[in-house]
């Protein structure tokens, strides 16, 4: 489902967090949202999954302003995988995945065949069957991320919002998860800290810097040496390898003006 963010303004405690942000994701696109810490990435995501009402501008999912939809209606279109808060829920893995069906029910709805199918599919797709009956709190960080992705897929969304999905994962798990997301074909807006990973996963990148979009477009056009220096404070370049994968190469030292390079996450 198409995502359109237009002239978005966000102010928190009278401090502007986002200024005139515009962004589009066509149906089936994977758009990466990158930028240094504090650039407003997570705030932008919050407006998309309808947690934060913008002071100005609109967020449209499938052509409808999300704030004209009810919380439930919006959640039937958009699912989010957010950073794990570490809260002890007391729910098992399968119960956690089943939370994805919340928006598909009113007060009196009971779990039906459709719910069971959606949960079973999500569980199988994300490979969480081996620990389906365990307490969510006892899982490792990587296992939790897969469960949370399964919960989002059980929601049967047409737009997926991901916040640092691969943070806790080892390199193989990262690639597997990225492949998994690609294979769903769902329109995706993903905040990624790791530029290299963003370059691999995404069709397009949007670069946020101090609350404004400073670049947007295909990966190779966006991640220029100048942008890497100006926004991220590192020397580097991108190139497409013969296998088709876009790779980033950083220079060993940070830029001379004392700014540290992004630690290689």
């Amino acid at each position: 489902m198409k995502l359109t963010v237009d002239r978005l303004h966000i102010t928190l405690d009278r401090r502007p967090i986002l200024r005139d942000v515009r962004l589009e994701a066509e149906k089936g696109d994977i758009v990466g949202l990158v930028g240094p810490n504090g650039s407003g990435k997570s705030t932008l995501l919050r407006t998309v999954y309808r947690s934060l009402r913008p002071a100005g501008g609109v967020v449209e999912v499938g052509g409808d302003d999300v704030w004209r939809l009810s919380a439930r209606a919006a959640a039937r279109r958009t699912a989010a995988v957010l950073q794990d808060t570490g809260a002890v829920t007391g729910l098992s893995v399968i119960e956690t995945v089943a939370l994805g069906r919340t928006a598909h029910h009113g007060l009196l709805g009971r779990d039906g065949a459709e719910d069971r199918r959606a949960v079973a599919e999500a569980v199988a797709r994300c490979g969480v069957e081996p620990f389906a009956d365990r307490d969510y709190a006892t899982l490792s960080g990587g296992e939790r991320q897969r469960v949370l992705l399964a919960r989002a897929l059980a929601q049967r969304p047409r737009l997926l919002v991901l916040d640092e999905l691969t943070n806790h994962l080892d390199i193989r798990a990262r690639f597997e998860l990225l492949d998994l997301i690609r294979s769903t074909g769902i329109t995706t807006l993903a905040v990624l800290h790791d530029l290299d990973l963003a370059a691999r996963l995404c069709d397009h990148l949007v670069v946020l810097h101090e609350g404004a979009v400073v670049a947007a477009g295909p990966v190779l056009e966006v991640l220029t040496p100048d942008l890497l220096a100006d926004v991220f404070g590192v020397r580097g370049r991108t190139e497409r390898h013969p296998d088709g994968v876009v790779r980033l190469t950083y220079a060993a030292r940070p830029l001379a003006d004392g700014r540290e390079a992004e630690p290689g996450r």
Binding site: A73, R76, T89
Partner: peptide, 13 residues
């Protein structure tokens, strides 16, 4: 139980 932000994204006001 999943936290406020996640609950919102799951469709709960």
């Amino acid at each position: 139980l999943a936290g406020d932000e996640s609950a919102t994204a799951l469709g709960v006001d």
